[in-house]
């Protein structure tokens, strides 16, 4: 116990000296604990492999080219789905947010379809499209679409009345008000929606790859499960976690910082 605490103290000091690495520092003792547990033989190694084992499998799969291929497949599916979901979701959200009638009719329907959830669509999609790209694309677009639409609607309706009035009294026509006031004003919510949508979207992707897939990280994990390869499952989970860390940290957070935070729309 005392040793573990010393290790903790050391990692903390090290993290303080390298602020860029500080978010990784907490994982060091966890990795150590994991290695210790695996080495202790408390659980059978087949069920609970150590970090070195996972690293070895990582090397093998990288060398064979399986992991890069599958990762590429998953990322491309997610990117295409997210792009299509946004391209459909933002205009739809603006429409439902701006028009009273569209809102009254559309909002409950949107909530209902959002509630059905992506995964529940899988069986009927399989009947319609079979085990193919159509099913996968539909599920991801569907998953990304609803959080984007719902949040865009909320964003549009939270734009302060005074801003619209200011634009009107400066002579802005309706279309310009939409483009220069409503859409940027809704942007904080749109970014939130995109974040939620991607969060749900890549979970749906994993599930779809497990159930219908022939490639991708989800398929890798489920295939490994069939063969009883715990190591590959753990590898898949770590890759997924890291992937999201990078998408969030390198894409979404900088986007938010460059727009919403700079404009002072969120207090951080």
């Amino acid at each position: 116990m005392a040793r573990a605490l010393r290790l903790l103290g050391l990692t903390l000091r090290w993290a303080a000296a390298h602020p860029g690495l500080s978010s990784f520092a907490p994982f060091v003792p966890i990795l150590a604990l994991w290695a210790l547990l695996a080495a202790s033989g408390l659980f059978p190694a087949v069920f609970f492999p150590g970090p070195m084992e996972v690293l070895r499998v990582f090397g093998t799969l990288m060398y064979k080219g399986v992991l890069p291929d599958y990762l590429e497949d998953s990322v491309i599916r997610l990117a295409v789905g997210a792009a299509a979901g946004m391209a459909l979701g933002i205009p739809l959200g603006v429409l439902v947010g701006v028009s009273r009638r569209a809102h009254r009719l559309g909002w409950p329907v949107l909530l209902f379809f959002q509630a059905i959830g992506d995964i529940a669509w899988l069986p009927i999609l399989l009947i319609w499209f079979g085990f193919g790209l159509g099913t996968m694309t539909f599920v991801i677009v569907y998953t990304v679409l609803f959080p984007v639409v719902l949040n865009t609607v909320l964003g549009v309706r939270s734009v302060p009345l005074e801003l619209t009035r200011a634009a009107q009294s400066l002579g802005a026509p309706r279309f310009h008000i939409l483009l220069e006031v409503i859409v940027p004003g809704a942007l904080p919510n749109i970014v939130t929606g995109l974040r939620n949508g991607l969060g749900y979207g890549w979970r749906a992707l994993i599930a779809a790859e497990m159930i219908v897939g022939t490639s991708g990280i989800g398929f890798l994990m489920f295939d490994a499960r069939r063969a009883g390869q715990v190591t590959e499952i753990l590898l898949g989970m770590i890759v997924l976690g890291l992937l999201w860390y990078f998408v969030d940290g390198w894409l979404l957070v900088p986007l938010e910082r460059a727009t919403v935070e700079r404009w002072g729309l969120v207090a951080r």
Partner: peptide, 29 residues
């Protein structure tokens, strides 16, 4: 303070994994 500083990123990481990604290993265990 120390515990929360150390554990917050950790739980962030695992909350990102939450749900579906656990299915394969859960069914094995």
């Amino acid at each position: 303070r120390v515990a929360s500083a150390v554990l917050t990123p950790l739980f962030r990481f695992f909350s990102v994994l939450a749900g579906i990604a656990w299915i394969p290993i859960a069914t094995l265990w």
